[in-house]
């Protein structure tokens, strides 16, 4: 007798547990306002990344096309992956001395792991995080970027 009771109790519990599960999915089926999917290309205009979002490393330039990078190369050594390559140029200073300045600050986005050590290491705050996240390209060489814009120069008050 006991086993018969158990048999039906089993069925009852199973059906109850299954119905509980079905209640969950059924509820979500009838509540489409709970959909969490973002429709990405459509919401491009309204899509806003967080302020601190690490999209890529950029070098902010001001209105006069000036940046803060002195070309010291600390970011290059701080980077664990060899993502950053600094190419320096030598210019003649008015006082006759030769001075090394930045020629090209090359950033290999394809190798970057977004650890942020370069930005933290930079003594003159020349680097920052950019918000750009649509990095997909068809050609890998497009991922090698020069961060300082052509013709840009260093902001005057930066002292080495």
């Amino acid at each position: 007798m006991n086993s018969i009771f158990e048999y039906f109790a089993d069925i009852f519990h199973t059906v109850k547990s299954l119905l509980t599960g079905m209640k969950v999915t059924g509820r979500y089926f009838f509540s489409p306002w709970e959909i969490v999917t973002q429709q990405y290309p459509e919401n491009r205009k309204t899509l806003k990344m967080y302020d601190r979002f690490k999209g890529e490393v950029i070098m902010p330039h001001n209105d006069h096309n000036e940046h803060r990078c002195t070309g010291c190369g600390i970011c290059e050594t701080a980077c664990p992956n060899g993502t950053i390559e600094i190419i320096q140029a030598k210019i003649d200073m008015p006082d006759g001395k030769k001075k090394r300045i930045i020629d090209r600050h090359i950033y290999h986005l394809g190798m970057c792991t977004f650890c942020g050590l370069c930005i933290k290491a930079c003594p003159s705050d020349a680097l920052a995080w950019g918000q750009e996240f649509e990095h997909a390209v068809f050609d890998r060489s497009k991922l090698n970027k020069t961060l300082n814009q052509p013709g840009s120069s260093i902001i005057k008050d930066i002292v080495e």
């Binding site: 999915t25 979500y28 089926f29 959909i35 999917t37 429709q39």
Partner: peptide
């Protein structure tokens, strides 16, 4: 579509 709505998704669109 049904499975998408049950899973809080939009499904094919």
């Amino acid at each position: 579509k049904v499975c998408a709505f049950m899973q809080n998704r939009v499904g094919p669109n």
